[in-house]
Design a protein around this nucleic acid. Sequence first.
DNA 1: GCAAAAGTGTTTTCAATACACCCATGG
DNA 2: CCATGGGTGTATTGAAAACACTTTTGC
Lengths: 223, 223
Amino acid sequence: MDFNPGKYYNILESLVSIFTIDQGQVKVLLLRKKSEPYRGYWILPGGIVSNDETIEMNMIDSIEVKLGLKDVYLEQCHIFSNLDRDPDDRIIAISYIGLIDNVSALFKREDRDDIQTAWFKIGDIPKMAYDHARILKKNIEFLRKKIVNSNVLKSLFPSDFTLPELQKAYEQILNVTMDRRNFRKKFITLGLIEDTGDTNVGGNGRPAKLYSFKEEIKERNLF
Amino acid sequence: MDFNPGKYYNILESLVSIFTIDQGQVKVLLLRKKSEPYRGYWILPGGIVSNDETIEMNMIDSIEVKLGLKDVYLEQCHIFSNLDRDPDDRIIAISYIGLIDNVSALFKREDRDDIQTAWFKIGDIPKMAYDHARILKKNIEFLRKKIVNSNVLKSLFPSDFTLPELQKAYEQILNVTMDRRNFRKKFITLGLIEDTGDTNVGGNGRPAKLYSFKEEIKERNLF
DNA sequence: GCAAAAGTGTTTTCAATACACCCATGG
DNA sequence: CCATGGGTGTATTGAAAACACTTTTGC
């Protein structure tokens, strides 16, 4: 190849939308910028990719080392390479979605002076820096398509969960309402989940049965 | 960010699997390497991405300028960043699928001394250089998932086509056989295509009716 | 008139939907 | 005992699947 160095050097950043279910709400983890530009605005977690690591390694670093989270299910979403996405540098963004159950999500590292994190409901996103709002939107759209074709949501519910909780997650992500009886019937006949024999405690009303996902069998359309 | 230049400079290449339908066969366009390493092996078309262009611009350059093809429907597929994918350099590959109808595919530029191109049946792929076989496999898998959830195949059939032709394309990509009557019923009741009133000519047997895709209405599951 | 490929209709089966009442717990 | 939320069954509708014969052309 004809080689004019510089011309082919690109800067890459990884960005991830990490979703969890917190008290029946689907939420995404964001960081707050403490410096200019966009001071006070929110951004997606991520990092600049070095040329001695894979994107996945960089992603794991952002998530495990910087955020303190473990066992995040990751999937590549989209690349954004428009030239104007950062006013200062030309940076290509590679976006991922990450899914984590709310128990594991509790192990998130404490905020430090230079970093503030918070979980936001996906219907209630704060002001975001750069083009991160657009990227997050694309990631939510990706998740939406994903959950109707596979059982990726099991990453949000690795331990026991109730069917009403699962239904609420689907309803929020797909932005629809569903019939409780039909939702149960579908999930139970699909054979993706199994009754643990236990019920949950606390809360109002009748205790709900607890279920857990079976190990993945194969991908198929759910809705 | 702490900045140690060099460390964050990455080389990116775009790679595309361009599919078409040729005489009822789903085929992919490959180039043959004329120099070492991997002389004589086949590779996916693509190019190194400069830092003053988007991936999409680079893709268009590879396809329109280098190959002479127009109106290729493109969609991002996957990024490959493992460190050992090229023995000499660390290059990150961004793969796309491209779909083109067989009439437009004819306008492919003539082979030159330094470049040889050929269309291969997707079930009959030659020896490929680097990790391109793996990338192509992933791209075919992507296409497979895609066609059951949308009518992207219309990019392969922009002009008139017959239902048996369409069915054969689905059968090859999904690697299944389907009932002719049920296939017709489904596609006609889906309302994605319309009868042009014409029939094709030549060939054995009864002439087939010609159909064309309506403009996209919305995405939905087909199978 | 025969080979080759295209077109068509009906029955059965299964999944999706719509819908209303009872059950277990906490206070 | 009542408010809250969870669990269950049936009837209807619509789509998917299975299946065999007729039609149009070229030779």
